[in-house]
Design a protein around this nucleic acid. Structure first.
Length: 602
RNA sequence: GGGGCAGUAGCUCAGCCGGUCAGAGCAGCGGACUCAUAAUCCGCCGGUCGUGGGUUCGAGCCCCACCUGCCCUACCA
């Protein structure tokens, strides 16, 4: 038994999340966490909404609400969506809790005390009307190199050169059109060069690890080569105050959103522990022997393989300036950074502004969560970008999920119900029977290894192969033809088939938890085999406003392990109702039409 | 500009460290079966593995160049 921290990227609360988001961090982390729990590990899966930073501020102003009100709204929307998908967080919280503020400030103070935060004067763009930092990406102007008009502050999309916004000609704020002012400002920088050796050494230990994708490792190493100190404060009034005299009282200086967002993994662990009644319960998940798996999309790699490890190394005092850990003690760096590539939508990149988008909520309002989970697990962007199309979604659902797995459950349950009424006893097993049972029970080892090393697509394909084997077994043994000729043999076959279905259910449970539960019940089982997250309203632990959290009941009596569990003869099985809904072919056209309208209107 | 990924049957893709690796699913065609959400099972058809070089006894798998598409480049998973 190992302590496993499943650290899931924090969705940004400036709007509902779309399919690409849950393909990147959501489904893969849940498949992993569920499988690891079944395998007997002690898993802590945490996340929450990321609620600070400029985009939320801008969006709130556009809507005429406070940033907190905007964050409240989308925090709830996102939590509800993730719940509906069945993501089994032990705690899904948010970054505007007092607990989070306190943990982030403790992180800052200790890293500062250890000497890894340095103060510098910078020249940066601010909005003349508000005095806030204007991020590079919000500045537009003429490229000083190629003369292109639509260059952004950080990069010219025309010639591809990286730019410094100070050099842009005719710079204009994309937020309100005013001309930005470039002013000197004091900021704290995370001294990455002083931590580069520690981070580099940590990365080196991951070379050759089956849990690291080579491109993530390569990309991360590359980042280390040209490492520079990085500003972690901003001129903005929405964020966590800098906990130092002279700064804390200043309403226009706040910590940079990314500095606080990654600390969320720790603060959420702490919050989870405090809510269990044992405030120290988070520690085993953050100690050296624990496994810490971080899930995100590829655009987040830098924060998880560089910035966060550097913050942790600075906190622990592992950089070139030495130091010692703060109140949380020595904190373990991630053991693996699992990054997905991107999901595209009908051949185009997801874009809310261009209407190339479908929200998680929309999909779940019309389709079963496991159909979406199946598609994303079978065809998601695990190793490279992949495309979501309605045609392929419909095909995967109908031909693989419904016709392959759903039908196997249905035909088996139906045969048992009609001919016996309960799971029959097995008589003498033939070689064919043993072969099938060896295949389905043996698949646990293979699928488990694949999921544990983040090769979930292959894992699912192996699980579905087992499904195919059971279908083939039924065709070959044809129990329906034995009813009168050899009822004893029929009972044995049905017993073996029921065992095969049970095994497949277990193999698929991490991927398809909703239907695993349903299949369990169709086959006469009782109790919970797939715990589901619950949305609860809770009080802030430190006197802030109440808020919703997701929590998932742990273990329980009926929680099955990772392996074949013998079916119990005599368990009553009635006439089954289908577990999955087959999609009508016109779903494709309907959805494409919806998308076209979205683009026309958006 | 820098970095990365991909280019394998009509379609979507597997192919980990180079030696039954030329595969799977879908589509198409033919058969079987009828327990099951017209589901399932069997068989057939189908590819000079982007292009050109190189290394090797042997290369989708390694190296170089090129072509094409995509992504990241530090506040879109």
């Amino acid at each position: 038994m190992t302590h496993v921290l499943a650290a899931v990227a924090w969705p940004y609360a400036n709007g509902p999340r779309h399919l690409g988001h849950v393909a990147g961090f959501g489904v893969p982390s849940d498949v992993f966490a569920r499988q690891q729990r079944m395998a007997g590990h002690d898993v802590l899966m945490v996340s929450g909404t990321d609620e600070h930073g400029t985009p939320i501020l801008v969006q709130a102003e556009r809507e005429g609400v406070t940033p907190q009100a905007l964050a409240d709204r989308y925090n709830r929307v996102i939590a509800e969506d993730l719940q509906a998908l069945g993501l089994s967080y032990d705690l899904f919280t948010r970054t505007t809790t007092r607990n989070h503020y306190a943990v982030v400030q403790e992180m800052f103070r200790t890293v500062h005390r250890n000497g890894y935060l340095v103060e510098r004067t910078t020249m940066g763009a601010v909005s003349p009307s508000t005095g806030r930092t204007l991020p590079d990406r919000y500045i537009e102007g003429t490229c000083p190199i190629c003369g292109f008009d639509g260059a952004r502050g950080d990069q010219c999309d025309n010639c591809g050169n990286q730019l410094d916004p100070v050099d842009l000609k005719n710079p204009v704020s994309r937020i309100n059109g005013e001309t930005p002012k470039f002013v000197e400002s004091q900021h704290f920088f995370l001294d990455l060069p002083a931590l580069a050796e520690a981070v580099g050494a940590w990365l080196e230990t991951k070379t050759g690890s089956p849990s690291w994708r080579p491109n993530v490792l390569g990309f991360s190493r590359n980042l280390l080569e040209e490492i520079r100190p990085r500003a972690i404060t901003r001129d903005i009034d929405w964020g966590i105050p800098v906990p130092l005299p002279g700064w804390e009282e200043n309403p226009t200086k706040r910590l940079y959103v990314w500095f606080d967002a990654v600390v969320g993994y720790l603060s959420a662990s702490v919050e989870w522990a405090r809510r269990t009644g044992d405030p120290e319960a988070w520690r085993p998940y953050w100690s050296e022997g624990a496994r810490g798996a971080y899930f995100m999309g590829k655009d987040n790699i830098v924060f998880h393989s560089l910035i966060w490890p550097a913050e942790l190394a600075g906190y622990d005092g592992r950089g070139s300036r030495g130091g010692r850990p703060g109140a949380f003690g020595d904190l373990a760096l991630p053991s693996e950074v699992v990054a997905s590539e991107f999901l595209t939508m009908e051949g185009r990149q997801f874009s809310s502004s261009r209407g190339v988008v479908i929200s998680v909520r929309d999909v779940l309002s019309r389709y079963q969560p496991d159909a979406l989970r199946y598609f994303l697990s079978a065809a998601g962007p695990e190793a490279h970008d992949t495309d979501f199309t309605w045609r392929e979604f419909t095909r995967r659902t109908n031909d693989e999920l419904v016709a392959g797995w759903g039908n196997l459950v249905n035909r088996t349950a139906s045969l048992v119900a009609k001919n016996v009424g309960s799971i029959p006893e097995a008589g003498d097993l033939t070689d064919r029977d043993r072969e099938l049972l060896a295949t389905t029970s043996g698949a646990f080892g293979v699928v488990g290894d694949l999921v544990a090393t983040h090769r979930q697509r292959q894992g699912l394909s192996e699980a579905m192969r087992a499904v195919g084997e059971v279908n083939r077994y039924l065709s070959e043994t044809a129990p329906w033809a034995l009813r009168t000729s050899d009822p004893d043999r029929m009972r044995t076959v049905l017993h073996v088939a029921a065992q095969g279905v049970s095994d497949c259910r277990g193999l698929l449970a991490p991927y398809l938890p909703h239907s695993a539960q349903a299949v369990h019940e169709v086959m006469g089982g009782t109790g919970t085999v797939s715990p589901m997250p619950e949305l609860r309203e809770v009080d802030d632990l430190d006197g802030g406003s109440p808020y919703p959290v997701l929590q998932t009941p742990r273990g329980g009596d009926g929680a099955p392990g990772w392996g074949s569990v013998p079916v119990v003869p005599g368990t009553p099985v009635g006439k089954p109702t289908p577990v999955f809904t087959k999609l009508d072919e016109d779903v494709v056209e309907t959805e494409l039409e919806r998308l076209r309208e979205e683009q026309a209107g958006g």
